[in-house]
Design a protein around this nucleic acid. Sequence first.
DNA 1: CGATCCCGCCACATT
DNA 2: AATGTGGCGGGATCG
Length: 889
Amino acid sequence: ENVFDRSRMAPKTPIKNEPVDLSKQKGCTPERNPITPIKLTDRPQPDPWTPTANLKILVSAASPDMRDREKKKELFRPIENSEQSDTPDSLQYDMVDDSTVDEFEKQRPSRKQKSLGLLCQKFLARYPSYPLSTEKTTISLDEVASILGVERRRIYDIVNVLESLHLVSRVAKNQYCWHGRHNLSQTLKTLQEAGEVQYGELMTFFQQKEQDLEYKFGERKKETIPDTQDRPLLDFSEPDCTSASANSRKDKSLRIMSQKFVMLFLVSKTKIVTLDIAAKILIEETQDTVDHSKFKTKVRRLYDIANVLTSLGLIKKVHVTEERGRKPAFKWIGPVEFPGKTDEPRGISPTSDPLPRTQRGVCAPYQICATGKQRFTRHASFNGAQPCEGTRRKVSSEPNSPCQERQDEYCSKMINLAAVCRQKIEEDTRNKACAAETIVRNPSTTSPPSLLALPGDSDFCVNPLPQAVFPVVQADVPNLSLLNGVSSQALHPSTPAASKTENEKPTLLPSQPFLCFPSSSLFMLCGGLQENNSRETLPATGEVGNRSAEAQAAIPPAACQKRSSHECTSPSAPVDEEPAAKKQTMEHSDVPLSLVVPKKSFESPKAESTPGSGCTSAVHLEALHLDLASPAAPEATDKESTKPLDSREQEKWSQNKEPDEPSAGKEHSSKENVNQPFLPQYLYVQPTAGLSSFNFLFSANQASSAISLAASQLPSLTVPCVVVPSAALASFPVVCSPTVTGPLSPVPDGSFTAAASMNFSMSGLAPTTPVFIGTTAVVTPKVSPAPLVEPQQPAQPALHLSPVLARSCGALKLDSPVCVGHPVTLLKLQQPSSTPLTPKSIRPARHEAFFKTPGSLGDPVAWKKNEGNQTRSASSVQRRLEISSTSPD
DNA sequence: CGATCCCGCCACATT
DNA sequence: AATGTGGCGGGATCG
């Protein structure tokens, strides 16, 4: 073989190099030695084994740069490799090597040097981040592989991830087109939206859960997971691609996984995702099964993806220390805010891609569709059709899982997502404003403050103030806590953060009779929603959500309290919730509260937007809550507006139960609404009756916040709703935001979505029943977090509320006289600008009021649109509800 | 010893 | 059938 080799190198080199390699690589050996003509031919490239290779090695050992060059050289002349050119060098080097260097050689190859991350960097270095539009760079896999000196397989790993982010697209066999990062933000935005829908809740849960001790794979996860399951979640398919068939294998994989992984980051509040959680979430299968091996494999893949993302500068490795110890995690360091541009909320258009895609359908560009369910699939179109099982071959966990379920899950997820979105929004808002909500809890009643903490995320959470305060919400505060927000929050008890926000602001006075809500704000009266959602609906108890950052609504203290309590409880003990809630509620309930809410325009929260799925609608009630508040009211703008409602009435609403919405929290999308003007709308509710009848009001606006919400995206979320006791309802029409209307309705169940639109029928509302309904989605628990959770829940959706409400309401409100003073919690969200409302408190009477925002409900999509348009704009209407409280009773 | 993750077999898809 | 893709997991390294 190589003369050289033999003489010198050969013997050694091989050894040096790596015996291992030799062995591994089949071909290698041969190459070297012998003449290798053959080999050469076979592999044009440089194999490691070629003489050159040795050189390289050495070089590399010496310095990376050298090494690279070497590679390139090889590349360049790969074919030739036969020798000569190389030889000389090689010789020299060899010489050296031989004698001394063996060691070095060995070293070189260090694993790290061959890492995917490094390889990816090299790969990326070859192309401009922002190529001129004019030039199209095509990438030949073989070429790159040879240049970089790696097997093609590795290049696939890189390209697949890049493709998922649309940095490249496949043009043809072995050919990819380099797009650069021009569309990255859009892609991320799309992913974020899709992610919220799909994973919002989950993430929340998980994050929370993590905290929870218990949970481990098996358990709950399943719940959550289900959703997406296999199917395609996201995809981007191109529209046409059509290849339909394909899919199968492909879809899943790295590309999708990569997108999902990115979504997780985008949806995560903390922007930190631990590997195990990601793996759990990404194991669609759901099943509990989760076998360890599968988990392990998933993690392996995640490392692959993470390496590429790290090279792209989108994430970085970090460690999260938790009780159990430190866990590997990655933090998103890429852009977080995506300016709106994206077109639509939904998917990105496929089109966006520049690429042509190829035939296979593969096309590179994928879009993300949010479609109903969104899934993305790659090539094929797939999806559509196959929803359920279609594709998967794998083990699938559940073979059969019914689509339906999925849907439900989906919905749930959606909801969750929405929630998540809200949270985000809230957070944002919060940041901005900060102030906002507070929740108060009654002292008496309630629970200890400690209750829940909010989840980490927490944004949502409201914390009850220890005392009852009535919170009034100020407009300012953007966020309220949401209680709801996901149950998860609840989970975390600790979450201080959430609380903080709220707490801080507490301003309300206890005594105040009313609460005002800023128009913009949203509030949720009920408690628990979020949690529920998350967990399940069930309980409803929940809390009230609140939330939204945007809107700040004030919530009656009572309500607040409830929530708080709920939250607290819930998290911990779900069970408790009710009781707690009741208590509180009860107490409060009596007092009637009135609320006025200004409307705000809405904005939609982004979250909602999400959209895609219609399902989404899931929205949670929560959302509703929140939104309401807002205020668009001009005047309100905040502060003033809010003012006082003096009336003192109490608002009761809240009290009730809030059951509904479990999730409410999440939704909230509303965020700030600031953007939009609000119209002031108010809702007035009198408390008359008890809870039972709650109804919701919605604010017209939603708030959306700043975020682009305006757009319509989020519509769904935003919708604010308030729940009012039925009695109240009766009288009132429901308030809804004007705008909304229509669209939603569709929702099947009447869900909320409709609500959004509005009116739901209040009538319907019978007392107990509340409104919500949301689509199934609504309730869904998805994830339910552990704690509360219910196991089943699936059904819930619409239901929940009612039940919950009912329960809660019933119990609480009515009765308890006690409450009077209690504070209700309110939440408000306001935007900064908007006015704050002050709520007054209500008497505590028993009643509580709730509001929920609907946000989530139904389909996001629809909502969005509608909302966007309608609501926001106009409706300035204000509505009021009064609830009489019976309380005074 | 657990976290990483390289490597490449081999099944499936596309030509 | 050949070749392109890429799932997957053994097992080597790293820390």
